[in-house]
Amino acid sequence: MYDMNKQETAVTQKEIKFSARDVQVYYGDAHAIKDVSVELEDKTVTAFIGPSGCGKSSFLRCLNRMNDTIDICRVEGDIKLDGEDIYHKAVDPVQLRARVGMVFQKPNPFPKSIYDNVAYGPRIHGLARTKADLDEIVEKALRRGAIWDEVKDRLSAPGTGLSGGQQQRLCIARAVATEPEVLLMDEPCSALDPIATAQVEELIDELRKSYSLVIVTHSMQQAARVSQKTAFFHLGSLVEYGETAQIFTNPVDERTESYITGRIG
C-alpha cells in the first residue's frame, strides 16, 4: 500500500504544493492518522473521501495546523508547503494560516456585518492601507465567492442573517479575501440543500483556476463532480490516491472498490 502511494504520486505533472511524509496524528493515546504520505498539486481540486472517522478531516486540519488549537493533539512526520516544513519550530502558524485558508463544515460567519466578515482577514494581516483598498478587496472576494450580486446592497447587514448557502459562500469569500495559496474545505456542503450545494460546487470549480483546493467530502458523487485527484482514507491510513476518474472507475485497492460500491462506509 505504501509503495503504491509512491507509484501514484509519481504520475504527477503539475507543481507540488503540499508534500506530506509519514504523518502520524495522535489524540491523547488514540492513533488517528497512520503513516500518511501524499503530494498535493497546485491549481487542482483534491478530494479526500472515506468513511466517517477515517481521519480525512484530521489530516486536513494538519495542513494549516488547526490541530494546534486542540490541546491533546500531537502531529509527527513532515508536511512541507512549497518545500518549507510547516511544523518547524520557527514557523508561525498564524502566517501559515494566512497562506492556507480553510472553510468549515457548518457555515460560521462572525456575528458582524457582511462587510466586516470579509474585511476581517485583510485587516488583521494589514493587506489594505486605505478604506478604498479595503473596499476593493472586499468586493473582489465577494465576487470570487459568487455572492456579490446577492449582498452588494446590504453589506452592513449581519452575516448571520443570510441563508445557509449564502453563509457558506460568504465564508468562502472571507477565506479568499486574505489571498491564500491553498484553500482547505471540510465538508463544505454537508449542511446545505441541493441548490446551495450546486452553487458552491460551481464556485469550487471556478476557484481551481487560482488556488490549490483540498476538499473533504462524504459524497462520492461530489468528489467525482468537483475533483481532479482523489485520496481514499480508511481507518487512519491513506489507502489509495490518484486521478479521480481512475479511482472511481478502476480502483486498485479492493477496500477502495468496496467503499465506492457501497459495501463499507
Binding site: M66, R97, A98, G101, F104, P109, K112, Y120, R174, A175
Partner: peptide, 26 residues
Amino acid sequence: PQSLRDGSYALGSTQSETIRQVVLPA
C-alpha cells in the same frame, strides 16, 4: 461556539486577535 474561533484562526489571526475581535464581540 468553537466554530467562530476556528473560523478566525483559519484566517490566520492570533489568539488575542480572535478573542478581541471575534469572541468578545460575540
